Amino acid sequence: MIITALVLATLAALLHVYIFFMESLWWTTDKVRATFGSTPEDAEATKEMAFNQGFYNLFLAIATLAGVVFHMAGEATIGSTLIFTGTGSMLLAALVLIISSPSKASAAIKQGIFPLLTVIALIIGVAL
Rank of each mutant, 00 (worst) to 15 (best):
L14K: 03
L14M: 09
I83N: 00
K104V: 12
S100F: 13
M22W: 10
Q111C: 04
S80F: 05
H16P: 04
S24Q: 12
A66R: 03
A107M: 13
A107S: 13
L122F: 02
I124D: 06
I3G: 06
G88H: 05
H71T: 08
E41R: 14
I98E: 06
S103T: 15
S106Y: 11
F51K: 14
A43G: 06
E23P: 09
I120S: 02
G74I: 08
T87Y: 03
I83L: 00
T4Y: 08
I123M: 09
L65R: 01
G125T: 05
A63F: 11
I123P: 00
F55W: 15
G54E: 12
L97T: 09
L14G: 03
T10Y: 01
T46K: 07
V126Q: 06
S103V: 15
F84C: 01
G79M: 04
A43C: 10
M90F: 03
A61N: 00
K104I: 11
S80Y: 01
I109T: 11
F21T: 13
I2R: 05
G67H: 00
T85L: 13
T4K: 07
E75T: 00
N52P: 10
F114I: 08
I3D: 12
L122P: 02
M22D: 14
K110R: 10
L92M: 15
L122S: 02
F70C: 04
R33L: 10
Q111T: 06
F114Y: 08
I120D: 03
G86L: 04
G79P: 05
G86Q: 01
G74N: 08
L122C: 06
F51Q: 13
M90V: 06
I2A: 03
S89C: 15
K47W: 10
S100D: 14
P40V: 13
F114T: 04
S101C: 12
V126A: 05
K31L: 12
S106D: 12
A94S: 07
F36Y: 15
H16C: 01
V119N: 02
L25R: 15
F70W: 09
A105L: 11
D30L: 11
I19Q: 01
Q111R: 05
S24G: 12
T64S: 00
D42I: 15
W27S: 05
G125F: 03
F51H: 14
A76N: 07
E23V: 14
E75F: 03
V96R: 09
G67M: 04
T81L: 10
G125E: 05
E23C: 13
V96A: 10
H16A: 00
F84K: 02
L95C: 10
E48D: 14
M90G: 03
A76Y: 08
S89F: 11
H16W: 00
A121H: 03
I78W: 01
G112E: 00
I78F: 06
S38A: 12
T46W: 06
S103F: 12
T64C: 03
A43Q: 08
K31P: 07
A93I: 11
N57M: 14
F20W: 15
M72N: 09
Y18R: 14
